[in-house]
Write a protein that binds this DNA or RNA. Structure first.
Length: 267
DNA sequence: AAGTTCGTCAACCGCCGATAC
DNA sequence: AGTATCGGCGGTTGACGAACT
């Protein structure tokens, strides 16, 4: 037998996320991290499938996300990378810290495509657009050779050269503060240890819940008034985690934040 | 003011490779 | 070794607001 199914898909909620759902998910992930997304909604008290939770987190709730339009530099980089990689949005996003593949994909489809066409550049091939021609006659119907495919980057080489992004989605695993873990056990039947990511090291347990809450990002990271109305204390305590947060966790951006050798978020 | 079209983007869908059993 | 699921990816959809008629 294989693994258990990701979700029953019965009675699960779909559609836009509410502020309350966001609170639950953020609070859970901040205190527990995640090991497998399948159990996250259950333990967080959400009627969503794990996939939906992962998407919401990686595309919208992650603390390292930049929001807002891409800068000119970022846009140029996206165009360059697209010329090399094609529609491999996740690869492109990996080169733009704080940006998601979904965001870049949307921006490409809504903004950059048009811009390139206006400039007379084919957004697919990155070659100059050919002026409209009359339909070819029968005898010279042989089409011209297709433009060369987007220049591929050697995977291995790419891995070597690729500057490590600020943070990788799969690396976001909040360390397990002991107090939060205790609080959580009162609400869920699975021990916190069982939901911790394998990438969570024991060294992270020294971090307090406040440390975890002090994840960097401006206030707009949530993009939702609900959480802002609730406030950070409300956000955490709303999920049953008894933590007093004096500072605004989104008021600081730790540009030099990174991970230790065990993939634990360090500031 | 009402109706229609357009633009944007969050979220879903389905596929695929990796991997647990 | 075979099967089923997970996690991730790219494509697509649909809701919503803005702009236009």
């Amino acid at each position: 037998m294989g693994r258990q199914p990701c979700c029953d898909k019965v009675g699960l909620k779909k559609g836009p996320w509410t502020a309350e759902e966001d609170q639950k998910l953020v609070a859970f992930l901040l205190t527990h991290g995640h090991c497998c997304w399948r159990v996250v909604p259950k333990l967080a008290g959400l009627l969503r499938c794990g996939k939906s939770c992962r998407l919401r987190w990686t595309n919208y709730l992650r603390p390292d996300l930049k929001r807002g339009l891409l800068s000119d530099d970022e846009e140029r980089l996206v165009i360059d990378l697209h010329a090399q990689l094609g529609n491999r949005w996740s690869k492109i996003a990996a080169r733009l810290p704080g940006r998601t593949d979904n965001e870049i994909k949307n921006h490409w489809n809504t903004h950059i495509k048009k811009k390139l066409r206006k400039m007379g550049i084919d957004p697919v091939t990155h070659q100059p657009l050919e002026p409209p021609r009359p339909p070819p006659r029968e005898q010279d119907a042989t089409p011209p050779p297709p433009p060369p495919p987007p220049q591929e980057i050697e995977e291995s080489e790419e891995e070597e050269q690729e500057p490590s992004p600020l943070i990788e989605p799969h690396e976001i695993t909040a360390p397990p503060p002991a107090a939060a873990a205790e609080a959580a056990t009162s609400n869920c039947s699975v021990s916190p240890a069982s939901v911790l990511s394998p990438s969570c090291s024991s060294s992270a347990s020294a971090a307090s819940a406040v440390d975890v809450a002090e994840w960097p990002e401006p206030m707009y990271m949530f993009g939702m008034d609900g959480i802002m109305d609730v406030g950070w204390n409300g956000l955490i305590s709303g999920a049953g985690v008894d933590v007093d947060v004096d500072v605004d966790p989104f008021d600081h951006y730790y540009h030099d934040a990174s991970f230790d050798d065990q993939d634990v978020w360090i500031i």
